[in-house]
Amino acid sequence: MANLKELTHREDRLEGGHRLCAGCGASIAVRQVLLGAGLEPVVVGCATGCLEVSTTIYPYSAWKTPFIHNAFENAAATVSGVEAAFKGLKAAGKIPADKRVKFVAFGGDGGTYDIGLQSLSGAMERGHDMVYVCYDNGAYMNTGIQRSSATPKGAWATTAQVGAAQQGKQQRRKDLTAIMAAHNIPYVAQASISHWKDLTNKAEKAFAVQGPAFINVFAPCPRGWRIPYNKTVEIAKSAVQTGFWPLFEVEDGVWRQTVRVVNRKPIEEFLKPQGRFKHLFAPGNEALLAEMQSDVDHQWDALQSRFNCS
């Protein structure tokens, strides 16, 4: 597990000059994942979304790796095809049998939790030697902040508005990391861009695994969350400290907490700085706020019992 000094010796595989927003969490996630990946060659695939669009605007590519984008819902299937080609070309004798290459697919929460879930589930079940990384910013940011199944309950989104009849999104988020753990693949982890060491370690583990691995990375979006550009990492840290986004891994079925949170802070500390939760602090919404705290508590306790059981 490399420290920061050691990481500076590795090639930064995402070049600047891409056109993601200032303060974007997605590119921080990509850099940390690929720095953690180690020194082996990596082939990258990406679902349609902010990351893909902004990094490959013709004729410029920010990727210093081979890169493929196909469509929105099929990053996992596409990369599974690339990985299959690697095996097929080895079998054909066109690639040396001892050659090692790692395959990774990136997708946002829309492309992963929602439209790409089937493709992801299929690729993981088939056991391709690939890592899938979801950069979770909790909404369809590329199309303009529409709600996804990763959007927290109570959050404002352009398709889950705030008004007299409704206070933002009405439903709880989907627990994708647990869904991926239920695939019984060798490695599943939940990480955050705020905890670089934890994330780069998880990336290193995921890339070292023979077979499929999945990492769900918390990657805030200043534009969609209505926070200042410079607060991307700070708000991600707050998500960890409040227990909204626990950091853990599931290695060969064993659940393990990777970052301990000693004094878990109230959820308000995560919600308050964000414009998308502003309405929750208006008079009359106390119950909603209390419900969000109790949801986090419940999730936290359930997770602790998984750690304890393992």
């Binding site: 010796h9 070049e15 000059g17 969490g25 590119s27 921080i28 850099r31 720095l35 990492v233």
Partner: peptide, 27 residues
């Protein structure tokens, strides 16, 4: 490690300069 724009140059394990061609000033 936190720069979204790969715009902080490091050499010999030390931060040297900002790549102002790419830095978007996010802070």
């Amino acid at each position: 490690i936190m720069c979204p724009d790969s715009a902080i140059n490091a050499e010999d394990e030390k931060v040297t300069t900002f790549n102002l061609a790419h830095c978007k000033g996010c802070g």
